[in-house]
Amino acid sequence: MPDDPLRVGVVGVGVMGADHARRLAGRIANATLAAIADPDRDRAQELATQLGGVRVHADPLELIRDDGVDAVLLASPGSVHTEQLLACIERGTPVLCEKPLTMDSESSLQVIEAERAAGRSLIQVGFMRRFDPEYMRLKQLLDSGRWGRTLLLHQTHRNLTVPNPHFRSEMIVRDSLVHEVDCARFLLGEEIASVQVISPTPTRHALKGVVDPQVSIFRMASGAVVTNEVFVNSRTGYEVRCEAVAETGSAIIGRPSSGIYTTGVGPDGGEGTWGGGIDPDYRTRFERAYDIEVQAWVDASRRGELVGPTSWDGYASTVVCTAGMESLSTGAPVDVVLRAPVTRT
């Protein structure tokens, strides 16, 4: 492992990318924030000034080719990931890519094939829940076989609201449910065989024509069943929970807690309340998971290794979500078919 810190460039400094840039600048050991890139030059420059004057590129490909950058964290829109990932592979640069890997299965396979042809695994996909301490403990518990086979998972994913007026029904599948897809594959250690998306009556807070909440059902390769609720305009806060039901036991993670548990009459004299708050968004709920994820990626990159979700995991999740979007339009179950990549020489 080299003595010098890993020089990281961040591509895309919207909400997620800016959060990662601050993380790299202030909380990650053995790494330094070397550069940032964003088409919005003013936004990038403002962030760079806040973080001590790191280099700014308007063109992400310039950052990827920057000789002062050892590794890249991609927080750019998924529509541009293919080009940027291929550029990282061509240069031999380790990359942490926020989901999605790419927007469709064909381009995801193209990325996997390029990575395999290069002879080195370079891509870690940003499914941060795999690094969350509660998810890691649940994974260890299920893998131990203590309670026999895992038969069911029940997953809940709620957002306070989605201010983006372009966040349509399909995006709830592609951009939100994708986390439940990866968690099901991670916790159960197998692929999803089919997906069905059911459309309840939408909340009045949803945009016109948007199906929210959505309920989906995964049937796993072993026959295990996973139920998922995704509700992006819940108006209560950011809630992510998972219950695993095995043959002789069950476990729940993600329940809110506080230093003191209290109950009492509500402020209007109505139903009771408890004394804890609800996280406002994913950055608060999974802050520790993001810290662990990025630190693990930095440490592995300095060793020339890869940890965490791979490009294959990104591809598999894309295929499942594509099937989910098809099911959203029909209400019927859709089979998930994964294709093995063929490395081109």
Rank of each mutant, 00 (worst) to 15 (best):
A300C: 14
V320D: 01
E293G: 00
F286D: 15
D291A: 11
Y315K: 14
V319D: 00
W297H: 13
V294H: 02
G314Q: 11
S327E: 10
A323L: 10
R285W: 04
D281I: 06
G304L: 09
S329K: 15
V320E: 03
S327P: 14
S329H: 11
V320S: 02
T284L: 01
W297K: 08
L306D: 00
D268H: 10
S311K: 02
W274S: 12
S311P: 05
Q295S: 02
G277C: 04
A316P: 03
M325G: 00
W312K: 06
T330S: 15
S317M: 04
V298Y: 02
W312H: 14
D268V: 09
T273H: 10
G269T: 03
T322G: 06
G266N: 11
D279T: 15
A289T: 07
E326F: 00
A296N: 09
Y315I: 15
T330C: 08
D313Y: 05
R288Q: 08
G277V: 11
A296D: 15
Y290V: 01
V294E: 01
L328M: 14
T310V: 02
E293A: 13
E293D: 12
D279I: 03
P309T: 12
A316C: 11
A323D: 04
F286Y: 15
G266M: 09
Q295H: 02
G266Q: 06
C321K: 05
G264C: 08
I292L: 13
P309K: 04
S311N: 02
Y282P: 00
S317Y: 00
A316N: 12
V265H: 06
E326S: 15
Y315L: 14
G277M: 01
G270H: 06
T310C: 01
D281Q: 09
P280M: 05
F286R: 07
T322H: 11
G276I: 03
E287Y: 01
L306N: 03
L328N: 05
D281S: 10
E271I: 11
E305N: 03
T273Q: 07
T310D: 11
Y315D: 11
R302W: 05
C321W: 00
S301H: 02
G264I: 10
E271T: 15
D291W: 00
D291Q: 07
P267S: 12
E326L: 13
A300V: 14
Y282R: 14
D313N: 15
S317L: 01
G264P: 12
V298S: 04
G304T: 12
I292H: 11
Y290K: 02
G304H: 13
P267E: 10
E287L: 02
A300F: 04
F286H: 15
R283P: 00
G324H: 05
V298K: 06
T322Y: 07
G272H: 15
E305M: 02
G308P: 13
Y282S: 08
G308T: 14
Y290S: 03
Y282L: 09
R302H: 08
T273E: 04
F286M: 10
G304F: 12
S311W: 00
I292D: 06
S301V: 05
I278F: 04
D279S: 14
S329A: 13
A289I: 02
G264L: 02
V320H: 07
V307K: 07
G277N: 05
T284D: 04
R288P: 00
T318E: 12
G272P: 06
C321V: 12
E326G: 14
R303M: 11
D279K: 09
W297S: 07
D281L: 03
